[in-house]
């Protein structure tokens, strides 16, 4: 399948420079420098504990960084709560464990944030929500509760919920890791579809097939550092560092 490459622009969506983060005494992220263009699709991989989830959680400040700067859509992440809320409403995030709101129906999960954060009228919010549920192919589940859906369906609802905010950037944090194998595909298909529409995406994932198919750039992290980054073709064919080689042999070996 031919990859669409039309979307990458010169506009900078995320700019991270010299960013460092500690959990107590533990140095989780070291001197991260990363620039993401609008429309770019990035896959972040690496062994567990390498800091890749922490990195993308810093982008919408679910984690606070201690040194360096992160600029998202031209706004720097500081302790200013207003800026943080604004950035969060522009940056969608999908989690490993879905984190749907179990006390609300699928539809309510999707309309809640637009109605309260964007102050969209209920009717309009419902229309958008149905449109997004249609996009992830589960409009018929709109009035069920998350507890009544399968894992794959829940994850697709979670994607739809983020999309309802019309985000400019989407972060995916190991979204298929908690799913049964037969459900991984339906979620990946949704993500591929999004990628083809030109959404700026950063995906932490171990799905190397997905990385090959949609990523513009693959980033390999180990020990809190970006060890290597390259176009997927090159990345998989000619990994430069030994650590990347080791990781790839482990993950692709069987």
């Amino acid at each position: 399948m031919e990859k669409t490459k039309i979307n990458i622009t010169d506009e900078v969506a995320i700019h991270i420079s010299d960013m460092n983060k500690w959990f107590g005494n533990f140095h989780v992220l070291r001197d991260i420098n990363l620039e993401v263009r609008r429309g770019e699709r990035i896959v972040v991989c690496g062994p567990s504990g390498s800091g890749k989830s922490t990195l993308i959680r810093c982008i919408n400040r679910l984690e606070e960084h201690q040194k360096g700067s992160i600029i998202v859509d031209g706004t720097e992440l500081t302790t200013d709560l207003k800026n943080i809320d604004k950035i969060r409403s522009e940056v969608g995030m999908v989690f490993q464990h879905f984190n749907l709101f179990p006390h609300l129906t699928t539809l309510e999960n999707c309309t809640l944030a637009p109605m309260w954060v964007r102050e969209t009228p209920e009717k309009e919010a419902t229309e958008i929500a149905m449109e997004m549920l249609e996009k992830v192919k589960i409009p018929e589940q709109a009035h069920k509760y998350p507890g009544q859906l399968s894992g794959g369906q829940q994850q697709r609802v979670a994607i739809a919920r983020s999309l309802c905010m019309k985000p400019r950037i989407m972060l995916f944090d190991e979204v298929t890791s908690a799913l049964d194998p037969e459900m991984i595909k339906e979620v990946l298909d949704t993500m591929i579809q999004l990628a083809e529409e030109g959404m700026t995406m950063i995906c932490v994932t171990h799905e190397m097939g997905f990385a090959r198919q949609v990523a513009d750039r693959v980033i390999f992290m180990d020990d809190g550092q970006i060890v290597e980054q390259n176009e997927p073709e090159e990345f998989f064919k000619n990994p430069k560092s030994d650590r990347t080689k080791l990781f790839l042999s482990q993950i692709l070996g069987h």
């Binding site: 919408n60 969060r88 989690f95 709101f101």
Partner: peptide
Amino acid sequence: PLGQHEASASLGLTYWQSQRLI
């Protein structure tokens, strides 16, 4: 679960909105 706080924060809900609604 902590994920509920994170999910509501990631959608841009303020502290009080997230407490009240989620």
